[in-house]
Amino acid sequence: MKPLVDIQHLTVAYDGEPVLQEVNLQIADRDFIGMIGPNGGGKTTLLKAILGLVKPLSGTIVFRDDLPRTQRPFGYLPQVKHLDKKFPITVTDVVRSGALMCEKPFRNKREELEKALSLLDEMGVADIRHKAIGELSGGQMQRVFLCRALLSNPRLLILDEPDTFVDNRFEGELYEKLRQLNREMAILLVSHDVGTISGYVKTIACVNRFLHYHPSNIITARDLEIYNCPLQIIFHGEVPHTVLKTHHHE
């Protein structure tokens, strides 16, 4: 089976400065890829390139033939910090906006609404459906945006730091939920927290202008060093400690 998304020699630049260079990545149907890397290393840019939001300077992103040509029907959870929290929109409307990503549109508005409500229920936030987006806590907001991303039954779920502004309890629930979802869809997850996600993801991609693919979920400080991936690694153990690695390419 061909990969869902096939990225070859992708280079993206902003104002002539390359942000991503010669990136190769294949995303197959049941993949669960954790994407890590320093701030400004190009993680979000790679997601945006996959979503068609930034134009590559060179290279190709090819979608499998059974995906629609006109749009990229993926579930997408952006970094919530970029959204206007005071915008007058209700939780239900936010979730329903996920229908824009549908490969096959809902038969009618009712079906769409029912799906939205059942997702909110599944996420345990059905009671806040009439609230405005600005009235939610960080964890509630991430749940709502996850519902939006899932409304279209996507084959690939793209998540940009869904673990920011959330408490530890929700973080655990979120990753457990993603593990379940992974039975039905591929997941591409950007996170800062290598230690936590490595227990859930299947493979790891380290992005720091270049992309290094690590075909397993166990990653060590030494691996990161080889990949030239300056990153904070948190070891979860009896005595938590932090090792800071700073390396530069070239």
Partner: peptide, 19 residues
């Protein structure tokens, strides 16, 4: 209405959806 609202709220999401 829906397109106007969704674009106003999250332009990038609407763009990714091909609007």
């Amino acid at each position: 209405f829906r397109k106007i609202l969704y674009i106003a709220f999250d332009e990038e999401f609407a763009r990714a959806a091909g609007i």
